[in-house]
Design a protein around this nucleic acid. Sequence first.
DNA 1: AATGGTCGGGACGTAATCGGTCCCGGTTGA
DNA 2: TCAACCGGGACCGATTACGTCCCGACCATT
Lengths: 353, 353
Amino acid sequence: MRTVLEIQRVLAPDVVDVLKKRYTILRHLRHAGAVGRRTLAAALGMSERVLRAETEFLKSQGLVDIETSGMRVSEAGISLLADMEPMMKEWFGLAELEDRLAAAFGLRQVVVVPGDADRDPLAKRELGKAGAAELTRAAAAMERADNEPLVVAITGGSTIVEVADHLSASQGLKGALFVPARGGLGERVELQSGTIASTMAKRTGGGYRLMHVPDDVGEEAIATLMSEPHIREVADIVRCARIAVHGIGEAYEMARRRRVDAETIQKLRTGGAVAESFGYYYNRAGEVVHRMPTVGLRLEDIQRMETVIAVAGGGSKAEAIAAVLKNGQEDVLITDEAAATAMLQFSSLDAST
Amino acid sequence: MRTVLEIQRVLAPDVVDVLKKRYTILRHLRHAGAVGRRTLAAALGMSERVLRAETEFLKSQGLVDIETSGMRVSEAGISLLADMEPMMKEWFGLAELEDRLAAAFGLRQVVVVPGDADRDPLAKRELGKAGAAELTRAAAAMERADNEPLVVAITGGSTIVEVADHLSASQGLKGALFVPARGGLGERVELQSGTIASTMAKRTGGGYRLMHVPDDVGEEAIATLMSEPHIREVADIVRCARIAVHGIGEAYEMARRRRVDAETIQKLRTGGAVAESFGYYYNRAGEVVHRMPTVGLRLEDIQRMETVIAVAGGGSKAEAIAAVLKNGQEDVLITDEAAATAMLQFSSLDAST
DNA sequence: AATGGTCGGGACGTAATCGGTCCCGGTTGA
DNA sequence: TCAACCGGGACCGATTACGTCCCGACCATT
């Protein structure tokens, strides 16, 4: 039997956010006493208008009193706040996880959604939603020349599909150009980066480019391909990408899905590969032990990038995520509660050995 | 300590509606099996588009599967539905109350909101919201000549203030003309019908007219006033009203608030007055025992009206509401759970004696 | 095999809402 | 006395919601 809250998370997923927002406002307001809209909005990092809408709502519910000197929480509001405190603790536990992860892996920002993507499809959707939100925000924050489209590099995987599905048209992403970070990597077509890039373009009203590169070609064939003008052109665009959104996979799982040859498997095994991202395989220390031979982004391109967003969750991926983050290209991580908890355990174990 | 649900009812009142809507869709869908959008929309009385948005959401949550033959509830949906059933019963209890009230008092439609307006301010707000929704719907359903504004007659009272506060601009009410149903009845200004009419006009973008009639004048003075062109003009407009929205009060309570003279009090007492509405006082049988002398709507005008909406709640008003409804001018009743339950008790008592 | 009805999905224009921004007159506290 | 801050009002572009119609696919009946 599910709880009321779980049912709501399925049937009306946004309410949790709304509740959290209003709770936060009430809390700050109780702490700050009589304070005005602009001051409060600045303190909470909200825009004046949305905070205004919220406070007007809270006023209409009789939870805050509005006086000429400012707003303050009413008796009813204080009582409600007290009743909410315990049930909010659970949700705000995530904020603490975020801070600890950001510190442990040197990230600019971390978002942790509740649940475990391994077991709960909802958690995966939440990952996608959060990823889409971060991408949108990152794009909005970029300074852009008018004539130059914002290039966003995308990898494949089911998690990134979720990100694509939660994107929508916005100012920041208007006219953005979505490109696959790397060429064909032998996935199913609906999980391939090209498919995802086109979805994103469609949903945001942007454009996209594809690299039509055959799978399973050798290093020398890549060199030949790169001299093709079509491929070359797209590859050049990809290297101008300012944002990248990528998933993270377990090394062997990815190798299996991509049907890599026995020789490579052996290489991964001797190298102790645990993680895959962007077609690179990493060991637990975050060192690259193998690189899929295909065109597109190289590690140094990723380093140059302004915002690299990793989206991956599920307890089973914790080790892989930690490994990739140790390599240290990422700026933003979107993950779930299960992975976050496990990652912190890994990282404290490493620190102690 | 409040329950999660009660907290939500305060902090996010709309979710209950959303939940109910989605639950209803799931339920009907489970019952109907594979069925299409249009068919389902017709069965549920929704527009095709909103049902589509909902089913797309339900699909995105994995609760329904969409096939070429139609939509059907998925395994996960069935399990969720089972979990929801008990918690929904509580909310759907209200639907049953609505049906019984409609049958008992011969009403076209009844809306029962949860709670007790006597004790819970939220219930009163819900009354206002439901009243505003019904008014909007009634207005939208009217056939209107282009050049003739839709006239809506309004009474006073705190409940109708709530209705006004929940109105917003809509197509149906565009250009509507709000008028006080009757002249000054000696209330506080913020509870007077004129004030409310102007609020409604402002919120909907419509117009309003006021009757500037002094309080406490005799019958003969009324006749004189009616010959005044200004008064006369507005009174004529009022009588063309096609919709009325009114509150219902307890007889003595209203008499007290309006500071009526001792003689009238005596008249009310001998007549057994229990209820007041539109300035008319009713006994338990629904007979008019007194009429406040002022200009505006007469009982026969109300009879002619296309839609008369009564909005009143609170257990203490149950008897008064029942009395007014027995007179039988009303088409639509908006009330709350406490009043609804008590009214049904009254009505069954009456039937048995 | 033909056909009429219903299916999901796509598209489009308009109404309504949201949200960023600025302004204003009043209040307050230094 | 005055500057800073207050709530409320207003405006406008961006975004969303929604009514409506169309299309090709599919199915059952003819």
